[in-house]
């Protein structure tokens, strides 16, 4: 547990000293939101909550795939992964620590996108927005686990930057469907009980990706040395 916290803390401290990853994620999210406003703004009209929910999820997926996988890639670039693999932390614990770091970074970027969306889509800062934020955070748990695992799987391949989105996005489709529906309903004023079905799908995706990481991370980082 302490070793896990130490790895997570190391990533957070590195980020605090020079916020590379969160800045990159937030910038990509901002650009995605701007592009979506220009692309679809004229046809949104009455359905702004749906449009805002969709835009937030696009920002999450695009920035998350581009930036989230960096938590593993950065260790490879500096060959720090060797030290981590040699540390007394077991591979499941390493996965938890790394995906927790990805989760923190994605969450920061999501918080930023929510503020931007608040302005772009004229949303009210009320309970509905808080529920939407909770849905997004729930989606981020599974996505952080997924990009950490997939980032490690495709991390040593040629064309890594292309491969990680290709592997991660199709796997994330069920969470995306559930997340977009749940956030759109939540923004439209639905209570958590009314979107329970979608939250269950989202939770199952989180469970699958985290469980897959815990069970399979050993196989992925074995032979990194």
């Amino acid at each position: 547990m302490r070793a896990m916290a130490a790895v997570l803390l190391k990533d957070v401290v590195v980020e605090l000293r020079g916020p590379m990853t969160t800045t990159a994620l937030a910038t990509v999210s901002l650009l995605v939101l701007v592009v979506l406003v220009f692309a679809f703004g004229p046809v949104w009209g009455q359905s702004e909550p749906t449009a805002a929910a969709g835009a937030l999820w696009v920002a999450l997926v695009v920035s998350g795939t581009l930036g989230g996988g960096r938590v593993v890639a950065v260790e490879r670039e500096r060959r720090c992964i060797d030290a981590l693999v040699l540390s007394p932390l077991d591979r499941g614990g390493l996965f938890v620590a790394k995906s927790a770091a990805a989760f923190v970074f994605i969450l920061v970027a999501e918080g930023f996108s929510l503020i931007v969306a608040l302005l772009f889509f004229n949303l009210a800062a009320d309970a509905a927005l808080a529920r939407t934020a909770a849905v997004l955070a729930l989606g981020a748990v599974g996505f952080a686990g997924l990009v950490t695992l997939v980032g490690a799987v495709g991390g040593r391949a040629k064309g890594r930057d292309f491969l990680v989105p290709l592997l991660a996005v199709p796997l994330y489709v069920p969470a995306l469907i559930a997340g977009v529906k749940a956030s759109a309903d939540a923004l439209g004023g639905a209570r958590l009980g009314e979107i329970a079905l979608w939250l269950k799908v989202l939770l199952s995706c989180d469970a699958i990706f985290v469980a897959a990481g815990l069970l399979l991370f050993e196989q992925v980082v074995a032979g990194s040395e």
């Binding site: 695992l149 997939v150 799987v153 495709g154 391949a157 592997l167 796997l171 489709v173 069920p174 969470a175 469907i177 559930a178 079905l197 979608w198 799908v201 199952s204 995706c205 699958i208 990706f209 897959a212 399979l216 196989q219 992925v220 074995a222 032979g223």
Partner: peptide
């Protein structure tokens, strides 16, 4: 090894894909 890991994750994902798409 990487292929096997991805194949397993994909197989675990497929039922949720089918259910979510149907919903």
């Amino acid at each position: 090894r990487m292929g096997a890991v991805f194949g397993l994750v994909a197989a675990a994902d497929v039922p949720v894909v089918v259910v979510s798409v149907r919903l």
